[in-house]
């Protein structure tokens, strides 16, 4: 499904993606009352400790308290383990 007005793109990565069985979803921002990233996480039933989640909005590191806008790309990521 293509990204339309009032929608956001939600991405999961690595262990989160594997655990929940998807890596990309579009959803209506109208379903998220306060438009906060932490409420999106709750809405998509991702049940993990908040301190173990890193959030990026439109490819900028952000926070679970951040407010999301229409057409934003919101990524939920586990702790980084590169290098």
């Amino acid at each position: 499904m293509k990204n339309n007005a009032n929608q956001i793109k939600v991405l999961l990565f690595a262990e989160l993606s594997e655990k929940y069985g998807w890596d990309e979803k579009y959803l209506s921002l109208n379903l998220i009352e306060d438009k906060k990233a932490k409420s999106i996480l709750k809405h998509i039933n991702i049940n993990v400790a908040h301190q173990s989640i890193i959030v990026a909005i439109n490819k900028e590191i952000s926070s679970l308290e951040a407010t999301v806008k229409d057409n934003d790309e919101v990524a939920f990521m586990p702790i980084f383990t590169g290098g």
Binding site: F13, A14, E15, E18, I54, A56, M77, P78, F80, T81, G82, G83
Partner: peptide, 18 residues
């Protein structure tokens, strides 16, 4: 190692783990 979105998954002969 700590500030960039890379993730490692290890595969052994018995299975895998993040």
């Amino acid at each position: 190692k700590f500030k960039v979105p890379f993730w490692k998954k290890e595969w052994t002969y018995k299975g895998s783990s993040w």
